[in-house]
Amino acid sequence: MNGAETGIRRPGRGDRPEIEVRRRRANAWFAFWTAGRMQFRLGLRHSMTYAAGVLNSLMFLSILVLSRREPLDPGSTTAILTGTALAAFWASSVWGGVAILRRERWMGVFGRSITGVQDPLVLLTGKLLGASVLNLAVVVASLAVGCLIFGLRPAFGSPLGALLGFATVVLSGAAASLLVGALLVVSRHGVAISNAIGVPISLLGGTLLPLTFLPEPVTWLSRLISLSWLQDFLHTATAGPIDWTPLGCALALSLAYAAIGVFVFRRMVDRARRDATLDLF
C-alpha cells in the first residue's frame, strides 16, 4: 500500500490533447501519521484536553497527598503518582477517544473519512493514538508540577519497565477508545452511557480505590479491564521486583479490545451504508 500510482486519462477537447492525471493510492503510514498529527493539533487547541488532563491529575493527587498525615516515602509516592496518572489518563483518553468519533459525526466529517482512499480504521487508529499521546503528556506534565508543589520525590525501581508500562498504557487507552467509541457512536444515548459507565470502570480498574477494597464477587470483573493489570505492572516496575505477567495480560486484553473494536467499527460502517443509520454529512 505504499504510494502506488495509477494514471487517469481525461478526454481531449478541440485542440487540447488527452491528459494523464497522476493519482496516488492508499498509503497507510502517511495516513496514520497525518491523522495522528491532526488529532494531536486538535487536542492542543481543545479546552477539554486541559480540563480533563490537568484538573483531574491535580485533583486526584491533592486528595491522596493532603489526606495523609504521615510523610510519604518514595515508594508510596511513586505508587500514588502512577495510580493518579492512570486514573487521569483513562478519564481523559478513553472518554476523549469516544468523543473523537462523536465529534467527527457531529461536525459532518465522518462521511469524508469513510469515503476517502485511505482505510478509515487506519485513520481512526492514528487519531486515537495521537489523542492518547497528548493526553498522557498533559497528565505527566501536570503530575510533575504537582510533585514540585507538594515536594514529592518519586523513585522508579525500573525506569525502563515504567517506560514500557506507560507505552502500553497509551496503546491500551487507544484500543479501549476504539472499542467503546465504535460501540457508542451509533447510539443516541452515547454520551449518557459513557458518562454512566465512566466511574464504575475507574473503580473496577483500581484507579479510584485499591482493588482490595472491591467486594469479592466483582473482583473478576476488574480483571477484564486492562487498567487493573497495568496498575499491577506499574506497581512492580516502580517498587520492584518487576513482574511481566500483568504487562502480558494488559497487552492481551488491549489486543482483544482492538480486535473487537475493529469488528464493531467495520460492522457499524457497513450498517451505516446499508441502512443510512448515520447522518454522515
Binding site: 504510494g3 493519482r23 496516488r24 493510492r25 492508499a26 498509503n27 502517511f30 495516513a31 497525518t34 491523522a35 469524508r112 473519512s113 476517502g116 482512499v117 485511505q118 485513520l123
Partner: peptide
C-alpha cells in the same frame, strides 16, 4: 483532506 484523497 488531500491525504484522504490519496495525494502524497
Amino acid at each position: 483532506f488531500g491525504m484522504l484523497a490519496g495525494v502524497g
